[in-house]
């Protein structure tokens, strides 16, 4: 059984009576201990997806339809009280900017202890011991001293470690990390990524990594979902996605990386910009930026089709698959013809 099942999730924002769709028919599953990544440009709906899993959407956003199931519990219909049992304890979140996540006027220790004691009945002393142990496990030197310090006394990398420690406190099954390393330097980023991988591996936690950095994603995730304008356009094992991207948007994203062009040459940019929520193009939302767009792309929405390795929502890929299929049929006919012919001769 899947740990997390998101099925046809639709999330909208209602602003001044106008409904703007932020997520459209998003479906995916996550197994126990699996690491997946969600990539896409700003405005693709990555963070909204992360937030709607634990139902943290702020007004005017709301889940319009669809379901988010943790094992067999439906999360999208729960009230705040029931959700509090899930948040932190079963599904924990790590946000981009650790300074925004930590309360600046409370010590690190006070925040960690509060997190433990709000979920379990335990003495302050025991909670303190757990907190220090977890701080130690995320390789924070002299955790006893850090326990009484305030967030501003710590560096960016150190703060993100504290956040990871706070996530570990309650041993959740799923960690949702929304751009956890974007605010950090490369060397610190490498350490934090390694730490996240170790933590997930040691505690067999599942990870949903939200990122726009394909380099980071390729290090972390086993499977990657690519989002564009509120829809998942491609889902594939990460290695397949990087070596053989199917959707033109994924291809564009990968080709835009500086590593993909010769030094000094022009980079392969994707023309245009991600559409705003209020002017989503008709048909496939990517068609105004797509080099292969046809008339069909402008009017119809392509289905999500599984080709044996990856799932893609694109007419181009769909047509190619059908061609291959019919070619296979022809091949089969040929073989039948030749064999019967041979038999006849014999």
């Amino acid at each position: 059984m899947n740990l997390l099942t998101v099925n046809n999730l639709n999330v909208s924002f209602r602003i001044k009576g106008i409904e703007l769709a932020a997520l459209i028919d998003v479906s995916f599953t996550l197994n126990r201990g699996e690491r997946i990544a969600i990539v896409g440009e700003s405005g693709a709906g990555k963070s909204i997806l992360g937030l709607s899993i634990v139902n943290l959407l702020d007004k005017p956003g709301y889940i319009k339809s669809g379901s988010v199931k943790l094992e067999n519990k439906e999360l999208s219909k729960m009230n705040t009280r029931q959700l509090q049992e899930i948040r932190g304890k079963r599904i924990a979140m790590i946000f981009q900017d650790p300074m925004m996540t930590l309360n600046p006027v409370l010590t690190i220790g006070a925040q960690l202890v509060e997190a433990i004691r709000s979920h379990t009945r335990i003495s302050f002393k025991d909670a303190r011991n757990i907190a220090i142990e977890k701080l130690h496990s995320v390789q924070i030197a002299s955790p006893e001293r850090r326990f009484d310090q305030y967030p501003h006394e710590l560096s960016g990398g150190m703060r993100q470690r504290v956040i990871i420690a706070s996530v570990l406190l309650l041993n959740p099954d799923i960690i949702i990390a929304d751009e956890p390393t974007t605010a950090l330097d490369v060397t610190i980023q490498a350490e934090i990524i390694q730490l996240l991988l170790d933590v997930c591996h040691d505690n067999s936690m599942a990870l949903i990594l939200i990122s726009h950095d394909l380099g980071v994603v390729s290090r972390v995730a086993e499977r990657t979902l690519v989002m564009y304008a509120g829809r998942i356009v491609e889902e594939a094992p990460t290695l397949e996605l990087i070596n053989d991207p199917q959707h033109p948007y994924t291809q564009g994203l990968l080709n835009a990386l500086p590593q993909m062009s010769l030094p000094g040459q022009r980079l392969n940019q994707i023309r245009g910009n991600m559409p705003a929520l209020n002017d989503r193009p008709s048909g496939c939302a990517f068609h105004p930026r797509c080099p292969y767009a046809t008339q069909k792309c402008r009017t119809e929405q392509p289905n999500f089709i599984y080709n044996g390795i990856s799932s893609v929502s694109c007419f181009l890929v769909e047509d190619m698959l059908e061609e291959e299929k019919s070619e296979e049929d022809i091949d089969l006919l040929d073989i039948e013809y030749t064999t019967s012919h041979d038999e006849g001769q014999a």
Binding site: S42, H212, L253, A256, L267, N268, Q269, N273, M274
Partner: peptide, 15 residues
């Protein structure tokens, strides 16, 4: 900036 937009601005700077 995003990757694809980065590419646009970098191209412009090179031009």
């Amino acid at each position: 900036l995003d990757v694809s937009v980065q590419a646009q601005v970098l191209n412009l700077m090179m031009d």
